[in-house]
Measured scan of single mutants.
Amino acid sequence: MQRVNMIMAESPGLITICLLGYLLSAECTVFLDHENANKILNRPKRYNSGKLEEFVQGNLERECMEEKCSFEEAREVFENTERTTEFWKQYVDGDQCESNPCLNGGSCKDDINSYECWCPFGFEGKNCELDVTCNIKNGRCEQFCKNSADNKVVCSCTEGYRLAENQKSCEPAVPFPCGRVSVSQTSKLTRAETVFPDVDYVNSTEAETILDNITQSTQSFNDFTRVVGGEDAKPGQFPWQVVLNGKVDAFCGGSIVNEKWIVTAAHCVETGVKITVVAGEHNIEETEHTEQKRNVIRIIPHHNYNAAINKYNHDIALLELDEPLVLNSYVTPICIADKEYTNIFLKFGSGYVSGWGRVFHKGRSALVLQYLRVPLVDRATCLRSTKFTIYNNMFCAGFHEGGRDSCQGDSGGPHVTEVEGTSFLTGIISWGEECAMKGKYGIYTKVSRYVNWIKEKTKLT
């Protein structure tokens, strides 16, 4: 034993070699072989497995989906700052455009905790909710729209109204504003409101030439003092309507412009014939205590009207009353817009006519005020429907199939267009061939041609 100890002390290297040989010859039971080890760690190889990531292109799944990435790591994937920024906006807080917040056709661009709407022409605001041009839906104005110097929408209202708090709607500024039905039992019968379409306001006024200088022999019209197929109006439903009495009662109609003036057809009036105007009328054979009678003290036909040349060209006249009318729910003026808007309103496509005229061709006159909704007829169809001249200051309205029309005794009465609950004068009943005849239409004086003249002559002093 002493000898062994001496050998170990003198030859430590020998001992180490012996131990190493023993270990190498022993069977290893701690580690699995290569094949079995792979069965336990069965993990798919990654895209760049075996390579240094710093030297390969980034992978979106590896960089940002398996674990949260930084902007720089995302930049490695896209290799483009702009594309990385677009991805980053949604990656950080989701897609803010998912709810489609942009209105009126706006395009949404996502941002971090926010979004941006790219608005089409005519709109602005956070969600493109603000109209900035009158060309689109009248700028959301209830009545009139004008573009300011910086191309912003400025709404306005006709006389007797003021802008509401929203700067879009119009509200009454006087007790009985024009064009409004205020009798409670008839307010439910107000005709369907007309909503502004998209309009090209630059070209809204037709490029028409008034044929002022045409000389033409007097034409022989049949029954051209021209509501057939209409309905009984309720008291106060058309408070701007008046009836004219002269040699015979209810020979023509008219509309209240203001307390002192009536507008009617020029062919209705004769110099030297006494005319009485009755406002607030409903049943011409009954006294309903809503009527107001006034005498006409002055007749002003349009300066281009000449019955000797043509009885229905420039067929418009103004009547001055001896005493002002007292405005109330049964006696209310009709609204008159400017030339541009009167023309736009007419193009809405349908209007209402009213009167006490004959209820059928050569038949009896109506006792109760009649009204009828009539569609506008395109000019080409209008011209083809008659052998008589249709001037540019006239328009056609009615039904091709016949059966409904204005008729004798309705002449001078109103053709009105309702705009968001307020009625505007767009025409004056003038003439036609018979009444409600198939293929024939009622012919009306186009008020847009005469609004400046009306307003100039009827100013209240």
Results as ranks from 00 to 15, higher is better:
residue 7 I to C: 06
residue 312 Y to M: 08
residue 378 D to S: 11
residue 13 G to I: 12
residue 370 Q to Y: 04
residue 246 G to P: 02
residue 281 E to T: 12
residue 11 S to L: 11
residue 72 E to H: 09
residue 33 D to Y: 04
residue 103 L to S: 13
residue 303 H to Y: 13
residue 405 D to L: 14
residue 170 C to S: 01
residue 89 K to L: 06
residue 28 C to D: 02
residue 282 H to F: 08
residue 138 N to P: 08
residue 10 E to A: 14
residue 461 T to H: 15
residue 273 V to L: 04
residue 461 T to D: 14
residue 379 R to S: 13
residue 360 F to K: 13
residue 383 L to P: 03
residue 333 P to M: 01
residue 60 L to N: 14
residue 150 D to F: 08
residue 435 C to T: 04
residue 441 Y to T: 08
residue 339 K to Y: 14
residue 353 V to Q: 04
residue 160 G to Y: 02
residue 171 E to Q: 13
residue 28 C to E: 03
residue 144 F to H: 02
residue 403 G to I: 15
residue 245 N to S: 06
residue 117 C to M: 01
residue 26 A to V: 10
residue 158 T to M: 13
residue 456 E to D: 14
residue 385 S to E: 10
residue 449 R to D: 12
residue 415 H to V: 03
residue 208 E to F: 06
residue 102 C to R: 00
residue 304 N to Q: 14
residue 325 L to C: 00
residue 216 Q to E: 10
residue 129 E to A: 09
residue 353 V to I: 15
residue 326 V to G: 05
residue 173 A to K: 10
residue 276 T to V: 06
residue 10 E to T: 12
residue 405 D to V: 05
residue 398 G to R: 05
residue 405 D to T: 14
residue 394 M to K: 04
residue 168 K to E: 11
residue 227 V to W: 14
residue 318 L to Q: 01
residue 136 I to L: 09
residue 383 L to V: 06
residue 394 M to C: 05
residue 129 E to N: 08
residue 393 N to E: 08
residue 275 I to Q: 03
residue 159 E to D: 11
residue 386 T to R: 09
residue 386 T to C: 09
residue 81 T to W: 06
residue 129 E to D: 13
residue 27 E to R: 05
residue 11 S to I: 15
residue 417 T to K: 01
residue 285 E to T: 09
residue 114 S to W: 06
residue 414 P to Q: 11
residue 197 P to G: 10
residue 21 G to V: 15
residue 319 L to W: 02
residue 100 N to A: 07
residue 65 M to H: 14
residue 459 K to S: 14
residue 93 D to C: 04
residue 3 R to V: 12
residue 11 S to T: 13
residue 254 G to R: 00
residue 398 G to F: 03
residue 430 S to V: 13
residue 315 D to H: 01
residue 98 E to M: 09
residue 22 Y to T: 08
residue 17 I to N: 01
residue 15 I to Q: 04
residue 225 T to S: 10
residue 38 N to M: 07
residue 204 S to K: 11
residue 22 Y to D: 01
residue 156 S to K: 09
residue 248 V to R: 13
residue 365 S to K: 12
residue 208 E to G: 05
residue 243 V to N: 04
residue 125 G to H: 02
residue 85 T to L: 09
residue 385 S to R: 13
residue 144 F to W: 02
residue 271 T to D: 03
residue 119 C to Q: 02
residue 409 G to W: 07
residue 441 Y to I: 11
residue 420 E to V: 11
residue 126 K to V: 06
residue 389 T to R: 11
residue 397 A to I: 02
residue 309 I to S: 07
residue 440 K to M: 05
residue 403 G to Q: 09
residue 2 Q to L: 15
residue 57 Q to F: 09
residue 91 Y to N: 15
residue 116 E to T: 15
residue 97 C to L: 02
residue 157 C to Y: 00
residue 134 C to D: 03
residue 283 N to E: 06
residue 45 K to L: 10
residue 256 I to H: 01
residue 35 E to Q: 10
residue 78 F to Y: 15
residue 396 C to G: 01
residue 41 L to T: 07
residue 278 V to E: 03
residue 166 N to C: 02
residue 228 V to C: 10
residue 251 F to T: 06
residue 325 L to R: 00
residue 432 G to S: 10
residue 122 G to E: 06
residue 319 L to A: 06
residue 62 R to I: 13
residue 128 C to D: 02
residue 307 A to P: 09
residue 148 S to L: 14
residue 170 C to V: 00
residue 28 C to M: 03
residue 148 S to N: 10
residue 390 I to V: 13
residue 279 A to Y: 01
residue 301 P to I: 08
residue 213 N to R: 07
residue 338 D to F: 03
residue 386 T to W: 07
residue 36 N to A: 11
residue 51 K to C: 04
residue 152 K to E: 12
residue 128 C to M: 02
residue 190 T to I: 12
residue 204 S to I: 07
residue 302 H to G: 02
residue 190 T to V: 12
residue 407 C to K: 05
residue 282 H to P: 06
residue 35 E to T: 13
residue 226 R to Y: 14
residue 105 G to I: 02
residue 313 N to K: 11
residue 71 F to P: 11
residue 94 G to S: 11
residue 400 H to W: 10
residue 134 C to P: 03
residue 305 Y to Q: 02
residue 257 V to R: 01
residue 156 S to A: 11
residue 315 D to M: 00
residue 458 T to Y: 00
residue 288 E to C: 04
residue 67 E to D: 14
residue 45 K to P: 15
residue 349 G to C: 03
residue 197 P to L: 11
residue 136 I to R: 14
residue 70 S to K: 10
residue 42 N to A: 11
residue 424 F to W: 14
residue 424 F to E: 02
residue 117 C to G: 02
residue 451 V to G: 04
residue 123 F to S: 05
residue 102 C to G: 00
residue 410 D to Q: 15
residue 46 R to E: 14
residue 214 I to Y: 13
residue 185 Q to H: 14
residue 230 G to A: 13
residue 253 G to S: 08
residue 219 Q to H: 12
residue 322 D to T: 01
residue 183 V to H: 08
residue 413 G to P: 02
residue 133 T to S: 11
residue 325 L to E: 01
residue 126 K to R: 13
residue 190 T to K: 10
residue 180 R to M: 06
residue 385 S to P: 03
residue 265 A to N: 03
residue 202 V to Y: 09
residue 395 F to K: 01
residue 143 Q to H: 10
residue 308 A to L: 12
residue 161 Y to M: 04
residue 285 E to M: 11
residue 249 D to P: 02
residue 350 S to R: 13
residue 120 P to V: 11
residue 355 G to P: 05
residue 382 C to D: 01
residue 375 P to R: 13
residue 430 S to D: 02
residue 169 S to Q: 08
residue 279 A to C: 03
residue 30 V to K: 15
residue 266 A to P: 01
residue 127 N to W: 09
residue 47 Y to K: 04
residue 230 G to S: 12
residue 32 L to F: 13
residue 401 E to N: 08
residue 90 Q to S: 15
residue 178 C to T: 00
residue 408 Q to P: 08
residue 342 T to H: 03
residue 337 A to I: 00
residue 337 A to C: 02
residue 101 P to D: 03
residue 274 K to F: 03
residue 161 Y to K: 00
residue 38 N to C: 04
residue 407 C to R: 05
residue 259 E to K: 07
residue 118 W to E: 12
residue 368 V to H: 14
residue 298 R to N: 12
residue 38 N to S: 15
residue 103 L to Q: 11
residue 6 M to L: 11
residue 446 K to D: 08
residue 193 E to W: 12
residue 136 I to T: 04
residue 294 R to P: 01
residue 144 F to I: 04
residue 114 S to M: 05
residue 403 G to H: 14
residue 223 D to N: 12
residue 175 P to G: 07
residue 207 A to E: 12
residue 298 R to H: 06
residue 48 N to Y: 10
residue 77 V to D: 14
residue 37 A to I: 06
residue 215 T to C: 04
residue 383 L to S: 14
residue 172 P to F: 04
residue 332 T to W: 02
residue 39 K to F: 07
residue 247 K to N: 04
residue 400 H to P: 14
residue 67 E to M: 13
residue 278 V to K: 05
residue 117 C to L: 01
residue 250 A to E: 05
residue 311 K to F: 05
residue 285 E to W: 10
residue 173 A to W: 05
residue 330 Y to F: 15
residue 265 A to E: 01
residue 28 C to W: 01
residue 277 V to T: 03
residue 375 P to L: 08
residue 453 W to V: 00
residue 68 K to S: 07
residue 343 N to W: 03
residue 30 V to W: 15
residue 121 F to K: 13
residue 445 T to E: 03
residue 385 S to G: 09
residue 221 F to C: 07
residue 111 D to R: 14
residue 5 N to H: 12
residue 417 T to I: 06
residue 301 P to Q: 12
residue 451 V to A: 15
residue 317 A to S: 04
residue 79 E to C: 06
residue 224 F to A: 11
residue 147 N to P: 12
residue 140 R to P: 15
residue 120 P to D: 08
residue 36 N to T: 09
residue 340 E to C: 03
residue 367 L to R: 14
residue 85 T to H: 07
residue 344 I to D: 14
residue 309 I to Y: 06
residue 225 T to C: 05
residue 429 I to S: 14
residue 240 W to E: 00
residue 162 R to T: 12
residue 115 Y to V: 04
residue 52 L to E: 15
residue 149 A to V: 11
residue 126 K to N: 12
residue 87 F to P: 15
residue 26 A to H: 02
residue 5 N to D: 07
residue 350 S to V: 08
residue 407 C to I: 06
residue 126 K to M: 07
residue 428 I to M: 06
residue 187 S to Q: 09
residue 101 P to C: 02
residue 38 N to P: 09
residue 358 R to V: 06
residue 260 K to D: 02
residue 389 T to N: 13
residue 424 F to P: 01
residue 52 L to G: 05
residue 169 S to E: 08
residue 176 F to A: 04
residue 166 N to I: 01
residue 112 I to G: 15
residue 245 N to Q: 05
residue 37 A to M: 04
residue 154 V to D: 10
residue 449 R to G: 14
residue 325 L to G: 00
residue 184 S to H: 11
residue 90 Q to K: 12
residue 221 F to I: 10
residue 60 L to R: 06
residue 128 C to F: 01
residue 135 N to F: 15
residue 450 Y to C: 02
residue 85 T to W: 06
residue 287 T to K: 06
residue 99 S to V: 14
residue 328 N to H: 02
residue 180 R to T: 04
residue 107 S to P: 03
residue 362 K to C: 03
residue 130 L to A: 09
residue 290 T to F: 07
residue 259 E to Y: 03
residue 238 F to A: 04
residue 281 E to F: 10
residue 422 T to H: 03
residue 32 L to A: 15
residue 101 P to I: 05
residue 402 G to T: 10
residue 212 D to A: 07
residue 49 S to K: 07
residue 312 Y to W: 12
residue 423 S to D: 03
residue 142 E to F: 04
residue 406 S to G: 15
residue 223 D to T: 13
residue 58 G to P: 14
